[in-house]
Design a protein around this nucleic acid. Structure first.
Length: 796
DNA sequence: GCGGCGCTACTACCT
DNA sequence: ACAGGTAGTAGCGCCGCG
């Protein structure tokens, strides 16, 4: 019979010494089903040394076979390695774990150059070979098996025939369960062997919220509640479980705590299977997709502090003003005081509702990324950009008959990057910002850059591109791996964008396609960085170096064209140019760039006014719709106080919109006055900085490091990657000696003068000093400054 | 013993 | 744990100083 299914995840089990691939899926009715494939066997490739008798090697490999997992097939196959045809030996065994064993033995055989594709996990191997992607629809020839109570699914099938992809864009209705735990934490960081889980909140796709609450007993107060929660999960039977930082906190805590309590966290679709740590540091729940939404929040650069409430606020899921908030270090107080428990429950409810809200925002994109890269939904978020692209490349390599290179440790080799122009400082009016569209991917395509197209030695102009300044040569034909892959990605994206034009913008299909084209763009844009990443399987420094060299050449020639047309170039960075805006000339410029350089350049935006200091990568622009763009300055940095950022933004607005320097000065003075009066709340004075290594590894006692140490002294926990919020207190000497975690400081102990001198004044002067304003003027001792009119290029 | 200077460490940004 | 280019703050060692 034919079975239609939407693939969620793949895993495998070994039954009586045979591997069975398990395809966890949803059928057309939305029911969970399991499709088993008994026929697939693990394998890897062996690359022989040059001149080795391959048949002799084959027989020597055969002799390694062991009874527990025999080598069932050894054959010579034709593949390609970096584009060159090669004969390799394909070694097949039975039990997936034995790939490792045989790999090690084969590696040491005489005449073996390399062992390849032995590090691809079995379930993923299956998906690649069968061209199956998670989060896509298929139809397979299969037979129904007797129901097995071991699996919590409606039906179990056994694959009997082929599988084909269905052209169905929309996913089935997936059951999502959001959850969030609150833990008793009187000593700061909670300890699983001592501190109980006090509340578990769960919300399902139907919008129902359930809260599980600990008992008020001294002995294992959370045991019963955790059992109830486990029951609830299996009863609701979600396809996807989402949390916020659940891989980093909730799951590890639940696992340790349940271990201590003797509660079995039997929440998967395989009876008795418990969550366990898996690849990319994510936690895998058998048969379900455990997605940590924090991974996706990390990819929003606009949000600097990635707490659930900040991210939910930014995405419009739940406004900060509408939610109950309790600082984490006070949670236990709300639990201890029974009159305040209601508030704690409300807080927990808001958290889980926000989490579900984030799921609605992030999952559509995550689903597209999963179906594109072939990584299961629960891994795709946890995998870094480099790994996502790499999985995509591995799938493509299989289709081209290309062997996947091994990951090898290499030394870091720096190379030259892009050009950044010296800006012309001051205020400029009517400026267009032009960008090359996907400059690096297009250069890679145009010059056929890649490890397999690189030519050492002589090559004629008709046959090769030569990279300016480097002399590296890349053959023109045939296209290499990167070119093939990138063209396919860009072509597909173009096709999707065309399809989108045909359907209504508010339809679910439109949204799916939009998320898909975004995912395609992410992959294409990562290709250059990936090629220059020493950890990449397809690392190729000369290629990455060639791309940046071509980029520099391209932008230089574009500047030349702009100048020849009489456009004034104000600034430029990598693939962008800021030029005087004259529609006619700009159109001519765009055309000429296309004709002469063969690359597309487009007007990204037009600034009515834009202001530069002498610094690169920093400017403020007033757009045609009246909004202010701040780029690079303190106002957009997460490690400056809210107060300083606000001051700088307002100064920028006053200057660019109204041109009133005096007004800006008065405004800054007013804020300084308020600060000195104590009228500024402590939240606006917190400096947030990331801890990027273990505290013992720091060479200098920077303020945020000292603050982190002080947090640990009082029982707090600091992990690599955490942001520490500190304030500077009164006293003498180094700032680090006076930097304390904000929750440890009373408002009257804040060193207000530090904030005047090191936050407000520098942030304001960054812009105002160009207009002749001095620190003294902001401090109060007034002196006339120039008016903005003096600075508008020659106008009167 | 201490202020000034230059260098280094560190973080976060831009494309 | 995709790249290099850049700005900026604070710490720290060193120098000179009767």
């Amino acid at each position: 019979m034919k079975v239609e299914f939407y693939l969620l995840d793949a895993s495998y089990e070994v039954m009586s010494k045979n591997p069975i691939v398990l395809l966890w899926s949803i059928n057309s009715k939305g029911e969970p089903i399991l499709i088993k494939d008994y026929s697939f066997r693990p394998y890897f490739y062996v690359m022989p040394d040059d001149g080795v008798n391959i048949n002799d090697l084959v027989s020597r490999i055969k002799r390694l076979s062991k009874a527990t997992s025999p080598i069932i097939n050894v054959e010579v196959v034709d593949k390609k390695y970096f584009g060159k045809p090669v004969k390799v030996v394909k070694v097949m065994t039975v039990i997936p774990e034995y790939v490792r064993t045989y790999r090690e033995e084969v590696k040491h055989l005489r005449g073996v150059k390399e062992v390849l594709e032995a590090d691809i996990r079995f379930a993923m191997r299956y998906l690649i070979d069968k061209d199956l992607s998670p989060c896509a629809w298929y139809e397979v020839e299969a037979e129904e098996e007797y129901p097995n109570p071991k699996y919590r699914v409606t039906k179990v099938y056994r694959v009997t025939g082929g599988c084909r992809r269905l052209d169905r864009a929309l996913p089935p209705k997936l059951k999502v369960l959001a959850f969030d735990i609150e833990v008793y934490n009187p000593k700061g960081a909670p300890r699983p062997e001592k501190d109980p889980v006090i509340i578990v909140s769960a919300m399902n796709s139907e919008g129902e919220i359930r809260q599980f609450i600990a008992e008020d007993s001294f002995d294992k107060p959370d045991k019963h509640m955790l059992e109830e929660f486990v029951n609830y999960i299996t009863e609701y039977d979600p396809d996807i479980i989402v949390g916020y930082n659940s891989n980093g906190f909730d799951w590890p805590y639940l696992l340790q705590r349940s271990n201590y309590l003797g509660v079995k966290l039997d929440v998967g679709r395989v009876k008795g299977g418990i969550p366990r740590t898996s690849v990319y540091g994510h936690i895998s729940v058998p048969g379900r997709l455990n997605v940590d939404l924090y991974n996706f929040a990390e990819e929003i650069p606009e949000v600097k502090i990635k707490s659930l409430e900040e991210v939910a606020d930014y995405l419009g899921v739940m406004k900060k003003s509408e939610r109950t908030n309790i600082p984490w270090y006070e949670i236990y107080l709300y639990w201890d005081d029974k009159k305040r428990r209601d508030k704690l429950l409300k807080y927990a409810k808001d958290d889980v509702a926000s989490t579900m809200g984030l799921a609605e925002k992030f999952l559509p994109f995550a689903i597209q990324l999963a179906s594109l890269t072939g990584l299961p939904l629960d891994q795709v978020g946890a995998a870094s950009v480099g790994f996502r692209l790499e999985w995509y490349l591995m799938r493509e390599a299989f289709k081209y008959g290309e062997l996947v290179p091994n990951r090898v440790e290499r030394p870091y080799e720096p190379y030259k990057g892009a050009i950044v122009l010296e800006p012309i400082k001051g205020v400029h009016e009517n400026i267009a910002v032009l960008d090359f569209s996907s400059m690096y991917p297009n250069l890679m395509i145009k010059y056929n850059v890649g490890p397999d197209t690189y030519i050492e030695g002589d090559c004629s102009v008709e046959n090769c591109h030569t990279i300016p300044g480097l002399g590296y040569k890349f053959r023109r034909h045939p296209p290499g791996f990167y070119k093939n892959v990138l063209e396919a990605l860009l072509r597909l994206r173009k096709k999707i964008r065309e399809e989108m034009k045909k359907i209504p913008k508010d339809s679910p299909e439109y949204r799916v396609l939009d998320e898909r084209q975004k995912a395609l763009k992410v992959l294409a844009n990562a290709s250059y960085g990936y090629m220059g990443w020493v950890g990449a399987r397809w690392y190729f420094r000369e290629g990455a170096e060639a791309v940046t060299a071509l980029g520099r050449e391209t932008i230089k020639r574009a500047i030349g064209i702009a100048k020849s047309l009489g456009l004034k170039v104000i600034y430029g960075d990598t693939d962008s140019l800021f030029v005087s805006y004259d529609e006619k000339i700009i159109n001519e410029f765009i055309k000429k760039v296309m004709d002469e350089l063969g690359l597309e350049i487009k007007v990204d935006k037009v600034y009515v006014r834009v202001f530069f200091t002498e610094a690169k990568k920093r400017y403020v622009g007033l757009t045609t719709d009246g909004s202010i763009d701040i780029v690079g300055f303190e106002a957009v940095r997460g490690d400056w106080t809210e107060l300083a950022k606000e001051v700088q933004e307002n100064v920028a607005k006053i200057i660019l919109k109204e041109g009133k320097v005096e007004k800006a000065i008065d405004y800054v003075k007013k804020i300084i006055g308020e600060l000195r009066k104590g009228a500024v709340s402590i939240e606006k004075l917190i400096i947030w900085k990331t801890i990027t290594r273990r505290l013992s590894e720091y060479e200098v006692d920077a303020p945020h490091v000292m603050a982190a140490r002080r947090l640990i002294e009082v029982g707090g926990k600091v992990d690599v990657g955490d942001k520490i919020g500190y304030v500077v207190t009164k006293g003498q000497g180094k700032i680090s000696a006076r930097a304390y975690p904000y929750m440890m400081v009373r408002p009257q102990d804040i060193d207000v003068e530090y904030y005047v001198k090191h936050q407000i004044i520098p942030a304001a002067l960054r812009i105002l000093s160009y207009f002749g304003v001095s620190e003294k003027q902001l401090e109060g001792i007034g002196k006339a400054s120039k008016t903005l009119l003096d600075f508008f290029g020659g106008k009167k």
